[in-house]
């Protein structure tokens, strides 16, 4: 039996018809937030990472119904080509994007870190990105990019 889910996605409140057993990842993609990726569906790859009430979570292991009255931020909600978020800009500048499939999730994990810890150490960045698998890069560029973005967000650059 379908039900109505009330959520705020990227600042817009929405009412979405869902089935009780539907996974949040599938709902978000169906609603057009295609930057939320599916690399596994069991919580290991991190490509489906979103911010749920300002906390990074994996949307493939959540039922949509669990997010009633929550606020959700997806990659589409943090910046655009014309007005990128400092983390997005840093990922571009550092040239760390390869196939790109891991990138939206990784950027949201990084945002979650920097929102809570504006001056992380390199090890803290490593820990924060540990749940986001990337098969193309050696991660060092992403770590550098997050540190660079942190400096920008602190107003140092």
């Amino acid at each position: 039996m379908s039900q109505i889910l009330h959520v705020t996605i990227n600042g817009t409140s929405k009412e979405i018809a869902i089935e009780p057993d539907e996974i949040l990842l599938d709902i978000l993609r169906r609603e057009g937030y295609k930057g939320v990726k599916r690399g596994c569906k069991e919580g290991t790859c991190g490509t489906c990472t979103i911010l749920l009430n300002d906390k990074a979570v994996k949307s493939c292991i959540l039922l949509a119904a669990q997010t009633e009255n929550c606020s959700i931020i997806t990659i589409e909600g943090i910046g655009t080509r014309d007005n990128p978020h400092p983390i997005q800009q840093a990922f571009v500048d550092e040239g760390v994007v390869q196939c790109g499939f891991c990138i939206p999730g990784m950027i949201l994990s990084a945002k979650n870190l920097l929102d809570n810890n504006p001056s992380p150490t390199k090890d803290e960045v490593k820990m924060a990105l540990d749940g986001n698998l990337c098969r193309c890069t050696g991660y060092s560029g992403q770590i550098k990019a997050v540190l660079a973005a942190a400096a920008v967000m602190r107003g140092e650059k």
Binding site: G35, E76, P84, F91, V92, V97, G100, F101, I103
Partner: peptide, 20 residues
Amino acid sequence: RLKRKDADTKVTGEAPYAYD
């Protein structure tokens, strides 16, 4: 070291992969 051509669409989540 020029900026990657495909970086913009990939950091914004716009890049269309097969299942998109």
